[in-house]
């Protein structure tokens, strides 16, 4: 009996290890190749001879990844901050206040989930071009076009609303007795309670902002506000066989997301699991 159990255990371990190796192999290759010389990447080398830190310096300064990196960070920060604030504000009345039209508003918000970005891209580009000429600040080649259209998300509002509905009514009664209104209750009681879902949707927003490619290509045509995704694409299509520099660029583009993931790994994985369970 014991041997059968341990045999099963070994099979389990082998299966998991296989999955783990396949999941991590491309990362290992990316890291190793980013430290190689050009010759080594062409020569089927598996390990870099001397570690070429210079690849990173070259990608960072000569290929200007530093400034694209900074652009992406600013864009992501604005987008995450804006989405979380506006979605929190919108989710609260939908979850806990009574007013006429609440259900209709909620349905309309949910309906936007169905619309793929491909459909909105062209008209939004025309809208943003119009705003560029008719508003006090420029939109094209500037941060507003890159961030404002994404500052509210139906998915985030939905998730926060579901969470807020679970907050016990007694808390609101107690807050009212203490003389707090809706605004104080939202920002002093509800906000801290929403920490876990906010971290989850914040991370998802960060990833999608960092990944955005089509829209930034449309609304930036100078390097001034070009994000790292567009820079990587141009780099890949122009630099041809410079594999070691491409990999250094990819590592640079990966670091912020992996850092964030390392910090909030537990909450994020739990949050994603919950979103699947509730459908």
């Amino acid at each position: 009996m014991k041997t059968v159990g341990s045999k099963k255990g070994t099979l389990l371990a082998i299966g998991l290890a296989c999955g783990g190796v396949i999941a991590s192999l491309p990362f290992v290759w990316m890291l190793l190749a980013s430290f190689m010389t050009r010759g080594e990447t062409l020569r089927r080398a598996f390990l870099p001879g001397d570690i070429q830190w210079g690849n990173y310096a070259k990608a960072w300064s000569e290929e200007d990844f530093g400034s694209y990196f900074e652009n992406s960070l600013i864009i992501a920060a604005l987008q995450v901050g804006g989405t979380l604030l506006f979605s929190l504000m919108a989710a609260y009345p939908l979850a806990r206040m009574k007013f006429r039209g609440r259900e209709v508003v909620f349905m309309i918000i949910l309906a936007t989930l169905m619309v793929p970005e491909t459909v909105t891209m062209v008209p939004n580009f025309l809208t943003v071009s119009w705003l560029h000429h008719n508003s006090p600040f420029g939109w094209i080649n500037n941060w507003p076009a890159l961030t404002i259209p994404f500052m509210a998300s139906a998915f985030t509002i939905f998730l926060l609303r579901q969470f807020m509905r679970g907050i016990p009514e007694e808390l609101w009664d107690a807050a009212q007795i203490d003389g707090a209104g809706h605004l104080r209750f939202l920002f002093q009681i509800v906000l801290p309670m929403c920490r876990a879902p906010l971290l989850t949707v914040g991370m998802l927003t960060f990833i999608s902002s960092w990944n955005a490619l089509g829209w930034p290509l449309l609304v930036t045509n100078t390097p001034a506000w070009r994000p790292i995704s567009v820079a990587l694409l141009k780099f890949v299509s122009e630099a041809g066989a410079e594999v070691h520099l491409q990999m250094a660029g990819a590592v640079i583009a990966t670091i912020p997301v992996l850092l964030l993931y390392a910090l909030i790994q537990k909450e994020f994985t739990e949050g994603i699991s919950m979103s699947g369970l509730k459908g």
């Binding site: 504000m89 007013f99 508003v105 918000i109 619309v115 459909v119 008209p123 809208t127 509210a152």
Partner: peptide, 25 residues
């Protein structure tokens, strides 16, 4: 009034960049 004020920024963004584009398209 409070409810609608809280909702307005998200509704503005979703309206202009999420719903209007379908008709505009």
């Amino acid at each position: 009034l409070t409810a609608w004020i809280l909702l307005s920024p998200a509704l503005l963004v979703l309206g202009v960049f999420g719903i209007f584009p379908i008709f505009y398209a």
